[in-house]
Amino acid sequence: MSDVQPWYKHFWPWFIVVLLLVVVIKSMVAMSIAIDNADSLVSDDYYKEGKAINMDLRKIKQAKNLGMQFLIEVHDHELKISQHGGPEYRAALQVSFIHPTLEDKDFRINATADGNGDFRIGLSEAISGPWNVRLQGFDNSWRIQQRIDIQDDVEYWLN
């Protein structure tokens, strides 16, 4: 008679167990990656943000009515913003750079005009790629925002 070997001495049960273990380990890794890299683009309070967007649209319309127009020049670690349309604006300018996907790269600066009426912003590191740029008056009465693909030594018109 032939000897029947116990199950643990056969190839196929171990093959199935290994496959199941690989699937469990990969799903744990995928879950840890999903938890560590939460999506920052989804808002918890979308209704309140929707109401704020309507207020922003009024500010954008006000900027268009005033004829506000700005030129942004990018040079290595410096941004130069100069006004070329609308009533002369010399108060502080709220400048926001919002990255489309990486919230930790966003930054906001209050810039003041120099003697020539230009707003200069020094940067700790050069920026490039797609950005949503928002210029807003210090009194929050108008706003200009536009998406631009920033490259070094290029001029961008915001209107």
Rank of each mutant, 00 (worst) to 15 (best):
N110S: 12
Q5H: 05
M1D: 06
K51H: 05
I25K: 08
F11H: 05
S82F: 00
W14C: 01
K105C: 01
F107K: 01
L21N: 08
Q5R: 12
Y8D: 08
A52K: 11
G122N: 14
Q83I: 10
D114F: 04
V154D: 00
H77G: 00
N140G: 02
D39P: 06
F15G: 13
K61S: 12
R58K: 15
A30Q: 12
E155C: 01
I148S: 03
L20T: 04
R90S: 12
Q94P: 01
F11Q: 07
F107M: 01
Y8K: 00
L135P: 02
S43F: 05
D36T: 11
T101K: 15
F70A: 08
S43A: 11
I60Q: 08
Y47F: 14
L79H: 04
G67E: 03
E78D: 07
N37L: 08
S96H: 06
V133Y: 03
N132T: 08
M31V: 06
Q145D: 15
S128Q: 14
L79K: 01
K48N: 02
V18H: 02
V154A: 06
H75M: 07
H77T: 14
M31Q: 12
L79E: 01
K9Q: 15
A92W: 00
A111D: 03
R58T: 07
T112R: 08
L135G: 05
K80S: 10
Q94T: 09
M1S: 13
N132E: 06
H84Q: 14
Y47S: 01
R108K: 14
I60A: 12
V18C: 09
D76R: 13
R108A: 04
L20E: 06
